[in-house]
Design a protein around this nucleic acid. Structure first.
Lengths: 326, 326
DNA sequence: CTGAAAGCGCTTACAG
DNA sequence: CTGAAAGCGCTTACAG
């Protein structure tokens, strides 16, 4: 009545556990067809399932990569996960997702420890801002790790992401090319991604001899967007670059409520390009990131295969940016 | 240079591995403070991490529950996961998420097997429609499992969800109370959730002596929504119940493109009530599900604690339903 | 092609 | 409070 083991199979098929192990492990050439058939039949009858703990213990590795992810209520995560799952499968690795809560440092640290204790093949950290403790922990482990959709500013740490500086530069230049000279950047945080985008934005403004108003900080969320519209209006700009689709959506909702017409009174350029951009009215013009690619490339990278550092972004024109003429 | 084990700690602290194990395992009362201090210090110096495989093997259980989830591009998953993670944490369980692709039967089955092989405490299946094979596998295992946001129509199988029949009944009645008599149901599938909603819808129509047009099948996606608007229009109804927020959003986008005014020409009642409902213009009136509760209750249930079968739904009035007067 | 044996890194009665 | 020993369920040289 207890869970069957290879010992049970061995007993019933009259061979040793070594042979059972070989058959079940598909060590072709090391057993006769007859033995194979018998063992397989009995394994099936018994409803045998291997005990991964035992296998992992003796093998000292796992063939699974851990994906640590947080609850940022952006919905790009599905695409990233799809890319990771797909590529991992191709390379014979399973994926175990560890959820780190909503930028909860304790949970985040705990998730890394869990991954380490499981001897995973590699650790992927999606949209996770590590603190010093996290980084030390990761570096001291023998396990390769790679940040996904976050670039820490150094090639010493594996990462795959969009080039956020370039992304923001392009977004800004796009608005400038459409006649805008007063442009805000809203909803960005002060960490790596935020700083990089801020830098790209400032560079583009400077390159065009334009003055950049103060960047409006936020946390990439819808709530950030709704609460930031007033500040954007106060800056007297004609266009705003939103830190994420959710921020853009929040800005848009607030604009509707306050009678601000988009794009007539205010143009919005979003960053991400998820399906959210199609759902709003007007649809949001965006800097579109290739999250699927980011995911699959990060698997390559953490497994030591050739992989891109940066995945190209594209401008997707929809209906939230007006062309200004004077 | 190799990963340190309790053996290394034992050697350096001059105690047995049994004692090290006790200290590390916090078996209070079974070691002196002095020993504890010494062992902990050396463990830290060595950067010791326990080997979960070894622990799991000897303990024969895991303190982790597996959450199998698929890629349905609905974004309710975050709330479900939050509820699960939170409650699991309170009960001393970790959560390992296994991703089953997008209604991919092979992946789904594989995910279940993976969970079984890991001897998890329980298996949670979120928005997963099991086939016969899956169910047999699950039942034959000794591991408790619980469906999340899916009710298989029998109390024999653990599940926590909204009462979909009631939900659809309420949605229909709400529209009827607002003067609608011609109401479509769109984007629903033919599986459990879809059938239950269909039943509730039909019951409500019948109870009000109204004729229900043919239900318009779909897969809960945005694409389903956009492609279904024409069929809804062809039915000549004044209101439509959308199978999900994404379907509602798709219907709405198509309506905008085709010059159909919402809610003046067509009222939309959405099912789910996620943030998507706030992002669209007009905002979507919805039957709002309490996904967080569904998640946390399902943890209770799979761990054998008292838990609800159905979690209440509420009507959230926004701007997509018109009141008809005649 | 097959088996006996060692060993992976832990936990936990058992004895003291 | 501590240690020696057994054992969890596998895999894999080694020998035949």
């Amino acid at each position: 009545m207890t869970k069957p083991t290879i010992k049970d199979i061995a007993a019933q098929s009259g061979v040793s556990i070594a042979t059972v192990s070989r058959v079940l492990g598909n060590k072709t050439g090391s057993y006769s067809q007859k033995t194979q058939k018998k063992v397989l039949k009995i394994a099936k009858e018994l409803g045998y399932r291997k005990n991964s703990a035992a296998v992992d213990l003796v093998r000292k590795r796992t063939d699974v990569i851990a994906l640590i992810i947080n609850a940022t209520p952006t919905n790009f995560s599905t695409q990233i996960i799809d890319g990771i799952q797909q590529r991992a499968g191709e390379l014979g690795q399973g994926v175990m997702i560890l959820y780190a809560g909503n930028r909860d440092h304790a949970l985040q640290h705990q998730a890394i420890i869990t991954a380490l204790e499981r001897s995973v093949t590699g650790i992927l950290l999606a949209a996770i801002e590590p603190d010093e403790k996290d980084l030390t922990l990761l570096k001291d482990s023998r396990i390769p790790f790679c940040f996904v959709s976050l670039y820490l500013g150094t090639r010493d740490i594996l990462a795959v992401s969009s080039d956020n500086r370039d992304l923001a530069y392009q977004a800004t230049q796009y608005l400038i090319d459409h006649g805008h000279t007063q442009i805000s950047l809203a909803g960005i945080d002060g960490y790596h991604t935020g700083s990089q985008r801020q830098a790209g934005y400032r560079e583009a403004m400077a390159a065009n001899q334009l003055r950049a108003p103060a960047v409006l900080p936020g946390d990439y969320s819808y709530a950030s967007g709704t609460s930031l519209l007033q500040a954007v209006r106060d800056q007297g700009v004609t266009a705003v670059i939103a830190a994420s689709d959710m921020v853009a959506a929040g800005l848009l909702t607030a604009a509707h409520q306050q009678g601000v017409r988009v794009p007539a009174d205010l143009s919005i350029m979003s960053i991400d390009g998820t399906i959210i951009c199609q759902i709003t009215t007007p649809a949001l013009t965006s800097m579109t990131q290739d999250f699927y690619q980011i995911g699959s490339q990060s698997v390559n990278k953490v497994l030591g295969q050739p992989a891109a550092d940066f995945v190209p972004v594209t401008v997707t024109e929809r209906d939230s940016v007006a062309t200004l003429t004077r």
